[in-house]
Every structure is written in C-alpha cells, then in structure tokens.
Design a binder for these strands. Structure first.
Length: 623
RNA sequence: GGACCGGUAGUUCAGCCGGUUAGAACGCUGGCCUGUCAAGCCAGAGGUCGCGAGUUCGAGCCUCGUCCGGUCCGCCA
C-alpha cells in the first residue's frame, strides 16, 4: 500500500516544516510572504506550539470588544481558536466592525494564556494567537439567523440558507456522522465479502408500488424513463448473474408525500442481496452489520444479536403495529372471550359480530387523577375510537366506567387473565380487528410517552417475520398480495396448491428499531412456476404476468439461484444514531415537506425550448 | 385529498376579558470599557401583528375565507 493523499493535518504540518522550519519570531516579516492560507487549523494549536509564528484562516465566529483588547473567536471545520488584537495594532477598529461570519486570515505569534484566562471549554483554550496582520478572504453580510449562539431558527429559513445552517455545530456534526456511518457501512459490507455495484438511475417505470418520478425521453417522443424506487430488479439480476453478494448505498426515488422519517422524493438505502441464503442467513448478516455499527457510533444500550423475532400476527396483537417500539414495557392482550360471555352488551355484541376486545394493562397507576383518564378517553376518540373503557383495581374493589356492567364471575376471570393486582389500571378497546389493533397500539405508545415508561438511551431491535402472503381485499372482493408479490411463499408450490391462501406466510421480514421501520426484505421467489401460481391466486393470468414482469421471469428462467436480501434505510439509521426526530437534521440539503428545495428553487419552470425538445407540453398555464 | 397545531421586530417569544402610542431578550447601529470567552454598561434604529373580508364605537385578540410552515392520516410493491 502506498499513500496517495495526505490528511489536512499532515498537509499543514508539511507546510509548517517547509515555511517555518527553524524560523524565529524575528523572521516573521519573511513569513508574511508565504503562499498558503494557513499553517494550522483552528482546532489544532496547543501549549506546545507557543512561540511559533502561525497563520490561521476561518470564519469570525464571535467577537468580544473590550475597548482596549479585542477578542475574535476564529472558527473552521476543525475547531475554534481565540485571536487577540491589542490596541497598538492599527487595524483593530477595522476588525471590530467586521460582520460575524466574515472569512479572514490572521498571522501572529501563538501565546500562552495565563491560568485565570484559560477556557476549559475549548481544546485550544490554553493558547491564543496574538494578531500581527490580517487579510479579509471573504466578506459577509449580516446573517439571517444566528450561527453563534446556535439559537432556534425557522425551518424554511434554515433550508433557504442551508449553507449557513450547515456551519452550525449540531448540523455540522450530524452530517459528519452521516459520512462516517456510510464509510463504516462500506467497510463492513466489503469485509463481509459483499461487492458494491452501481445500478441505473434512468430506468423503466414499474407498474407496482409507489408513484414514479418520470423523465421524458428526447430520443423517443412520448416515452419516459423512471427513476428507480429501489434497485430491486437489478440486484436480483446481479444474483442471477452469479455475483453472489451485492450491496450499494443506493439512491431511491419515490414520488410520495413526506413524513418526519420519510424524505420527500429521494432517500438512500443500504441495499443488500445474497445468493444461496435462507432468511436466517440474511438476518445474521444484517445483525452483524448493525451490531458493529451501533457499537461504533453510540454510547447507548442496544440489543445484541440475535435480535428478537416476532411473527407479524403476534406483533399486531401485542403492539397493534408491525413496527413496535419495544422500549415501552407494555403489551396488549386479547380479552375477546372474556367479554363475549360478559354482561357488557356493547363489547359482547362487537365480539360476537366478529370483532375483538383488547386490554392494555399498566401496573401501579391507580392513583392517577381523573384528568389523566379523561385525557386518555379523549385521545382514543381523537384517533377514531367510540370511547375508551377502563378498570381500576383498588384495594378490595374494581372501579371504572364499565365496572357495573361486569358480573362477579366475569370480573374474577378478567382479573385472573390479566393478572391484575391492586393499583393496576387496564384500558379496553373493542372494535373490528384492524381498528382495535390500531387504536390499542396508539394508546400503548401514548401511555408509554405520558407515563414516562419509554426506556431511555436505548436501541431495541426486532425482526417482524411471517408476513401473510395474501390478504382479502374487501373493496374488490378478491384475494390480493398483501405486500410484495416477488417474495417466496413459505412452503413453496405445495403451500400455494394445498393451503388456504390467507393462511400462507411469505419469507418476508422487516427490521424495526425503537418503533421505526429500518427496512423490509424478503427471500425472493426465484422460480417462474411458483411465481405464475402466486399471481394466479391473486387473479392474474399467465399473459398478464408476462406482460408486466416478463423481463424478470425471463431472467429467472435461465438458472436462478435462491436469493434474498434487504435494504435498511441509511437516513433512518443515521437519524436514530444522531438521536434526531427528523430526517432533515441528518441530510445536508433536504427538501421541505412539500418536496421543494428552497435554496436551489426546485422544482422550477423550464423554457419552452426545453419542453419542445422533450416533446412535452405543460397543462399549467404560466402566469 | 383530509385533520390538527402554528404564523406578532432580522431571530426567539410575551401580549390579560376586545380598550391609550404593540413589549422583552438576542442580534444590528453608535458610544464607553485592556482579559473576555453566551463579555459588560449606555443610547438608538427596527413592526402592513401572514393576507383578505366581516362583527364591533374600537380587532394582534372574535368570525369566515385564504396563503405559508410543521406534524399526522391517506399514500409509501
């Protein structure tokens, strides 16, 4: 191995050696002629450098004008160094009136600070540069929001002046963390024997899935490229091509509305595909990656491999969602049978009509004030529940709005089933299964937050497994794929021909951390015969399948290895590790929620000429 | 497409029951100050209260509409 490039520190050291080597303070005049912007970075100088004649360049971070002495905090990527300008310098007044964020170069001697003037908050806080001369390298206008101190600023302004926002400590660190995490991912994947590939950005529109971003073709009037929603088909083709283990930090494009944890338009996945693997092989690879990653980048507690596996149906029952936040130590229980026999008519009728009753038990909160319970009822109503029943286990009796409807036997059974003890409170939700899951799940999370039950400083992972292959579409009154039609059904062809379709699971899985879905993945269906059969169950003819997915089927027909993969969301992982609630805090140049880049002014109108070349006419009338 | 929350000085916010000339802090400008490090002190400038209509003797405050931002639902194979 040989070295191609020096680090910044090495470069600076080199220049120092070249320019300053052996030179004393008396030679400073000569040094002023040197042709470089800095001898050191602003984070570098220490006691050992005292007495050296140094040159620093950076931004005016802050200044403190004492009339006599003037202090400038000079900032660059590497840190902050105090520059002091004494009144005998003619330029002191000029510097005192420069706008913050001016880019400036100072030359001067590095001096020791006296003990009482040491700033322990700065790594460079034991020294300061005594300015001899300066050069303004980049003038600055008054900034629209404060870089220092790092006060809150309106987000649309932060986006419009992103280059300023990125100077601020927290965001600067987050983006740096992003760089390090991605570098780690590349290293770890390569070490595990994966090869990185690039796949096309201009590709063809896929009929399934999210809304595509379309790019009009100049050479083929009326035809369009689509930006990839994910390199799904390409990575499978690479497996069929025999490359065995693929990964890519893959840009993905989906024209769907944004959320706090979902960027509008574009995002990155650590896209992974492996040949000759089972579901467990994929889990093992991802667990190894994530364990290493979290080990490297967090001080918090996190689950070690193997992560908990939770079948989809169990997750929906216990947590009311397929992306459970396991930091909340509460599980939902099914109590349908208890209410079926009970005297509580509303619940009994719902259950006998095919609905379910769910219980959320919280220990030791019987003493909560009435307003707490009213608040919970109100919350339940706001998310679409008729109301919210609850029982409170007090010393010797059970109270609550529904207590009077339950006979002694029902109450005894319920107490036993829920293992309810004095001081416990149980909330009840009764509805059709889908609604009951959703409402109970949200109440579980709300209780976790309001009662401060969410485990702090911890990352809790789980795999959600055994997603149903098919589901019944009430609207179209037919069987549909519930998620991905290209996943391998568990049991293969035999299951498709023998079992009730709604009982078939797919080799499909999600990985979830702290209630955030990091990724979906699957063992793919690599057999055309099983593919045709699966589509047949969902009501597609062989011809329809050929028309829509012909290219993929063709590729699978020439000797395809069993393969599978996953694609953890890079942005979301960074968001978790940076402990940020929003993707924009870990993205250098994000769009706003309405998919606009406020700095670059995208999307924007284009010229008539451009449109003509692309054979496009806009239906929007220009102002 | 829908729901909720928000919009007052460059920024962060306060503004009581609808009642005099809309306040504070930071920033900015000027001045004072030789050791600060979120420097300090004094003075000053800075406002179409998002926009439009309505109710009222009177609207930052109430009503309706509208625009903008965020969060969520829909959507995200």
């Amino acid at each position: 191995m040989y070295k191609i490039l020096n680090t910044v520190e090495e470069d600076a050291a080199q220049k120092r050696d070249d320019v300053y080597a052996g030179k004393s303070y008396s030679e400073k005049e000569k040094n002023r002629e040197m042709h470089c912007y800095r001898s050191h970075t602003c984070g570098e100088l220490r006691k050992g450098n005292v007495g050296e004649f140094v040159r620093l360049s950076g931004w005016i971070h802050n200044r403190r004008d004492h009339g006599g002495v003037l202090f400038i905090d000079l900032r660059d990527h590497y840190g902050i160094t105090q520059v002091v300008i004494y009144p005998d310098r003619m330029f002191q007044k000029t510097i005192a009136h420069l706008a913050k964020e001016t880019v400036i170069r100072f030359d001067g001697m590095l001096a020791n600070r006296s003990d009482e003037n040491i700033n322990s908050k700065l790594p460079t806080g034991e020294v300061e540069v005594v300015a001899e001369s300066y050069d303004i390298l980049g003038a600055a206008e008054l900034v629209p929001f404060s870089i220092f101190p790092e006060d809150p600023a309106p987000e649309d302004m932060r986006l419009e002046y992103r280059f300023l926002d990125l100077r601020r400590g927290k965001l600067h660190e987050n983006i740096l963390l992003r760089s390090k995490i991605i570098a780690y991912m590349r290293r770890a994947m390569t070490d595990m024997g994966f090869n990185e590939f690039q796949t096309p950005i201009l590709t063809s529109s896929s009929p399934e899935g999210a809304r595509d971003f379309l790019v009009p073709s100049r050479l083929h009037p009326g035809k369009f490229y689509a930006l990839p929603q994910a390199p799904q088909q390409f990575k499978q083709l690479l497996m069929i091509a025999g490359f065995d283990r693929y990964f890519q930090i893959a840009p993905c494009f989906r024209d769907e509305d944004a959320r706090a944890d979902r960027s509008p338009g574009e995002f990155y996945q650590l896209d992974i595909e492996m040949s000759f693997v089972t579901q467990e092989d994929v889990f093992e690879a991802v667990e190894k990656l994530l364990e290493g990653l979290f080990n490297e980048f967090t001080e918090w507690k996190f689950d070690k491999a193997p992560f908990k596996r939770i079948p989809y149906r169990e997750a929906m029952l216990k947590y009311g969602t397929d992306k459970p936040d396991l930091r909340i130590p509460v599980e939902i229980q099914d109590v349908s049978q208890n209410f079926l026999k009970s005297g509580f008519k509303i619940f009994a009728d719902t259950v006998s009509g095919g609905g379910v009753a769910r219980a959320i038990a919280v220990r030791g909160i019987a003493g909560k004030p009435r307003s707490f319970f009213d608040g919970m009822v109100e919350f339940a109503q706001s998310i679409g529940s008729q109301g919210l029943a609850y029982l409170v286990w007090n010393e010797g009796n059970v109270k609550g709005p529904i207590a009077k409807f339950l006979d002694e036997q029902s109450m005894t059974d319920l107490t036993k089933k829920l293992d309810a003890k004095t001081g416990d409170v149980v909330f009840f939700v009764c509805n059709d299964e889908a609604k009951a899951n959703k409402i109970a799940g949200e109440i579980r999370v709300k209780l976790g937050k309001d009662l401060d039950m969410i485990e702090q400083n911890a990352y809790r992972f789980c795999w959600i497994t055994d997603f149903p292959m098919f589901e019944y579409n009430e609207e179209l009154r037919k069987i549909d794929f519930s998620h991905n039609p290209f996943s391998m059904p568990q049991g293969g062809m035999e299951a498709l021909t023998q079992k009730d379709p709604l009982e078939i699971y797919a080799y499909q899985y999600d990985i979830v951390c702290n209630g955030i879905e990091l990724s979906s993945g699957a063992i793919r269906n690599h057999r055309p015969d099983i593919m045709y059969k699966a589509f047949e169950i969902a009501g597609y003819s062989r011809e329809q399948v050929d028309e829509k997915f012909g290219a993929m089927i063709k590729a699978l027909s020439f000797g395809a290895p069993p393969h599978g993969g996953i694609a953890p969301g890079v942005d979301r992982i960074i968001m978790l590790l940076a402990n940020e609630p929003n993707l924009r805090e870990v993205t250098a140049f994000p769009m706003n929620q309405r998919a606009q880049d406020l700095m670059m002014n995208a999307p924007c109108e284009v010229t008539e000429k451009q449109l003509r070349e692309l054979h496009i006419r806009s239906t929007e009338i220009k102002a």
